[in-house]
Design a protein around this nucleic acid. Structure first.
Lengths: 410, 410
DNA sequence: AATATATAAATCCATTTGACTGAATAAATC
DNA sequence: GATTTATTCAGTCAAATGGATTTATATATT
């Protein structure tokens, strides 16, 4: 855990992040409001804002006067203040996107190929990264984020079975990318990256804590608490696809029986489709084989409901966000099938917010999310950590370094 | 979440806590070692230690010389530096204990009565608290911690059924205790309090993250991560007793079917015993009805195993600690019945530590733990928070106030 | 219409807190 | 006496604070 003390040089960057994060979440907002919100004085916030403006992270605009007094200057993130490249590695290809500070996808590319071996992938990484960089050649590039299927380094289920990648065990993806590009690189699992994206730019903006469900080829999840994604001791928290949900159920490649992923996942649907029509594709399942989808939904709904009750009782989140690589139409079907929800601690007396939310971010979520892995280095409030349990980054504070830097009050 | 900025006056208490926590975990330890560990200079640590010594939290002793140079002064927590009263409310009585900074139970008392209504309980609280205070009349009393069965404020399952308390809905336990005693009072659920005790004084000292399972009348749990107990959005995280583990299983008072607690809990064993012998008692189950216990263990083992795999895949902890109100012998039986463990992300390639640990702290865990709720106000490293998600305590820093205070460099 | 006052937002400046750097001191061994 | 190690003393510096000041607008008064 390595508890660290604080000192003045540590405190300033921390306050910078707090202020920047507040602007991100509450924009447009004025200096005074930030001050009262974060518990600093207006003067302090003012000097921090000056730094942030000079470095291009924040822009301000004089409001229209209403009431007496000097009209406030509303501050907001400068979307062009920084960019990150998000990479999404799947068993059937690699996606890349250039994402700005506001989470907008400036441009993206997808390269389909198989098998996705490390050597071929690294070559494609380089091409994709160069392409993305070319979209904003002179901008401040904050880093690269890579989302990969989990879990990491687990004997029985790493990179085995249809939902995982083969041949990647022990490959230092982050290290190699940093070496070839000179940019800081961060690697995360698909669901944790997507959850981070959701927390920064999606439904998670309004939720202090939420559980994120990611229906992909497999089925993943991530708990977001206090702004951080909980990764667990070894980054494998959220392997919800492998919770044993049906006693003595289907055999799973992980060695257990009745894993959630065997029922609720695109791979599970695909298996059903292929059994009837070997040429069927999950993407077109609703159009081509609606009856099979109906059957699948009906049979998996109780399984999904039990999974949801399990999450609610174990994590007590403010809400559960359902999202994923699946098509929006299919997600909506799954979402609707969760009703009626089971009883759980989520049934609070004064509850107003919904227990379940559907994220329509769709497939962009992962790419945005993986870029967010890098962007979080700038935007994270807690000493640079958006992932609880992650090693503390000892790099210099990225906010005040980088190409876009103009001279700060020398 | 309310992000807060930091400043020097905020930084000093934080550093004090970091130093104190380091001493607690690593004692005996010298100033220099603390400095390099927490990243502060020796001088800064020195001044902090001086304060802590003057306030009686820490004592130092000159080591025996070995090698040349001035022998180091080893520092350790002064167990008598502070005390807290732990209260444990159960459906059949109330326990109280006086606990010192080192987590030692200085004295304890149990008052059996039923039904445990709020009015009778508050009267008994007062007697017990007075008794505990009398054990160290002049010592610094840090506060009162109360452990109660969960969950809080949930429509369908609050205070209903054999494992819960009735008539306590909406009762402000902490507020009333503070009002009558003048001491800060903290209320937590049984498992979260016990988990905190385990983290401060038990197996949790060596684990950065662990899941804590508490076999009580019901079945509870708590995730400890980075030194904090994760409470969830409303303090109800860890209602593991109500995860639906058997599809279409036994009906539970919560309204669902097949809840874990219906199988693995003292209440479940009790039901089995009473069905055969209405006068049977769980405490004497192993002696009086070994066959029934065998049968219960055999039938619940697969259920427990699935629960363990679920926890491992959802939280990825370093380990799972099994503990509880149950007798040590019974816990050992349950513990042994978890083998063979199912596959999960816990099966890491280089794994050396056990996946499951048995805590022999026994029934003291809860009382120590509830006292720890109050003690954590002093020992918590993160700005006074040992519970992630808890409201920030705006009280003055308890370390430097209180009866034992001698004049600090006026 | 012209002027004065009230209010709100943001900035300037002296003060204070607290951690840091470097020198000094104390207690041991060589 | 020289060297080594642990700890303390003295001065420096970064950064947040409180109070006064400046700027821009609205409203009241003459």
């Amino acid at each position: 855990m390595a508890l660290r003390g604080t000192n003045q040089e540590f405190g300033r960057p921390y306050n910078r992040r707090i202020v920047l994060e507040t602007i991100r979440l509450e924009a447009p907002i004025a200096r005074g409001d930030i001050a009262s919100r974060v518990g600093l004085t207006v003067q302090t916030v003012s000097t921090i804002i000056r730094e942030l403006e000079q470095n291009g992270f924040v822009t301000g605009s004089r409001d229209a006067p209403k009431g007496r007094g000097l009209p406030r200057t509303s501050l907001m993130l400068n979307p062009e203040g920084g960019f990150a490249i998000g990479l999404h590695v799947t068993p059937i290809g690699i996606g890349a996107a250039l994402v700005n500070l506001a989470g907008d996808i400036v441009g993206s590319r997808y390269h389909a190929f198989a098998p996705v071996t490390p050597e071929r992938s690294f070559a494609i990484f380089e091409t994709l990264i160069a392409e993305m960089r070319a979209l904003r050649p002179d901008a401040r590039m904050l880093g690269i984020g890579v989302a990969m299927p989990g879990p990491n380094d687990v004997e029985s289920m790493s990179f085995v079975g249809p939902t995982t990648l083969e041949g990647w065990k022990g490959v230092d993806v982050g290290g190699r990318l940093t070496a070839t590009t000179g940019l800081p690189a961060f690697v995360g699992t698909e669901p944790s990256a997507a959850a981070l994206g959701e927390r920064l730019y999606g439904k998670g903006r309004d939720l202090n804590s939420f559980y994120y469900l990611y229906v992909g080829v497999g089925f993943g999840g991530a708990m977001v608490h206090g702004g951080s994604v909980l990764l667990g001791a070894h980054g494998n928290a959220g392997e919800i696809g492998h919770i044993p949900i049906v006693p003595d159920g289907d055999l799973c490649p992980c060695g257990n029986r009745g894993c959630l992923e065997r029922y609720v996942s695109l791979e599970a649907l695909d298996r059903r489709l292929k059994a009837v029509d070997p040429g069927a594709e999950v993407e077109r399942a609703l159009e081509d084989h609606p009856a099979i989808v109906d059957e699948w939904i009906a049979e998996t709904a109780p399984v999904l409901r039990r999974a949801i009750a399990t999450i609610e009782n174990l994590f007590d989140p403010e809400g559960i966000v359902i999202s994923g690589f699946a098509s929006e139409a299919l997600l909506r079907r799954l979402f609707a099938a969760t009703e009626p929800l089971m009883h759980s601690v989520a049934e609070r007396s004064g509850r107003t917010s919904p227990r379940l939310l559907l994220s329509t971010e769709g497939k962009d979520a992962v790419m945005r999310g993986s870029a967010a892995l890098a962007i979080s280095g700038v935007l994270s409030p807690r000493f640079g950590l958006l992932f609880a349990g992650e090693e503390e980054r000892t790099d210099r504070d990225p906010i005040m370094t980088g190409p876009a830097k103009k001279e700060v009050a020398a």
